[in-house]
Amino acid sequence: MLPQRQRIVALAAALTVGLTACGAATDDSSPTPAASAPAPTEDETASPDDDGSTSTAPSEDDSMKPSPIPTPDPGGSALPTGPVPDSVLARDDVVAATEDYAERRGVDVADVTVEGFAAVTWSDGSIGCPEPGMMYTQALVPGYQLVLGVDGQLASYHAAEGKPFSYCASPVAPAQTNPST
């Protein structure tokens, strides 16, 4: 049996290796979504969210600026598209996201189509929309991914279970897609 001091040193070394591995990229050939997202500006402020993550919120002046239209994440996974049940289309959170996207694009709500919806499990508290320099809870988060479209351009909206959808300019694929709800 190792003396206590040697056990502590061995444990510290193992933790260091494990934590270092958590931050390592698995594929150096493609940029990470966080690396391709713009850094927060002076007008953005950090605030803790209900799910334990910290996110940035744009100032009121930024809310009316057009947002870039996202594409599938660089990892190659496509956004979940396909038929969406009427029961999902009638959900208050889906209606609110549709109205938000119409405002972002400067179009009528009738011009926004719901292209897909999936119950998912997000890999962490960023709910598939990590921001550079932010820290998130490292736990699986059940939630939803909503895909909206205008004129063939798709946008991804993400939510934790029981929370409203939020627009995601640089979506990251969920840890898993769950059976239909």
Results as ranks from 00 to 15, higher is better:
Asp50Val: 08
Ala96Gly: 06
Arg91His: 07
Leu89Thr: 09
Ser77Pro: 00
Asp62Leu: 07
Gly76Val: 06
Arg105Cys: 04
Glu99Gly: 15
Ile69His: 14
Asp92Cys: 01
Arg91Pro: 01
Val84His: 03
Met64Leu: 04
Gly76Tyr: 03
Ser55Lys: 09
Val84Gln: 08
Asp51Ile: 14
Ser77Arg: 15
Ser47Val: 13
Arg104Pro: 06
Met64Trp: 07
Asp93His: 05
Leu79Thr: 02
Ala78Trp: 00
Glu60Trp: 09
Gly82Ser: 11
Asp61Phe: 02
Ser53Glu: 06
Val84Tyr: 04
Arg104Ile: 08
Pro48Asn: 09
Ser53Gln: 07
Asp50His: 02
Asp73Val: 00
Leu79Gln: 10
Ser77Lys: 13
Ala102Tyr: 05
Thr81Val: 15
Ala39Gly: 09
Tyr101Leu: 06
Asp62Cys: 07
Ser53Pro: 02
Pro85Val: 00
Pro85His: 05
Pro58Ile: 04
Ser87Arg: 14
Pro68Gly: 05
Asp100Thr: 13
Asp73Trp: 01
Val88His: 01
Gly75Tyr: 10
Asp62Arg: 07
Asp50Gly: 12
Pro40Asp: 11
Thr56Phe: 15
Val107Phe: 06
Pro66Phe: 00
Ser67Tyr: 11
Gly106Trp: 06
Pro85Tyr: 00
Asp61Val: 05
Gly106Tyr: 07
Asp62Gln: 14
Arg104Lys: 13
Ala90Ser: 14
Leu79Lys: 03
Pro72Arg: 12
Thr81Trp: 10
Thr54His: 08
Asp51Ala: 05
Asp73His: 02
Glu99Trp: 00
Leu89Val: 03
Ala97Trp: 02
Ser55Val: 02
Val94Ala: 12
Pro74Cys: 06
Ser47Glu: 12
Thr56His: 14
Ala90Leu: 04
Gly82Val: 10
Glu99Lys: 11
Pro70Trp: 08
Tyr101Gly: 10
Pro40Thr: 03
Thr54Asn: 12
Val95Met: 06
Ser77Thr: 11
Asp93Asn: 13
Ala90Lys: 15
Gly52Val: 02
Val94Leu: 09
Ser53Met: 05
Pro83Val: 09
Arg104Leu: 10
Thr81Leu: 04
Ser47Thr: 15
Asp100Leu: 09
Lys65Cys: 01
Glu103Met: 07
Pro40Tyr: 06
Ala90Met: 04
Tyr101Phe: 14
Gly82Arg: 07
Asp93Trp: 00
Thr45Asp: 11
Ala97Arg: 02
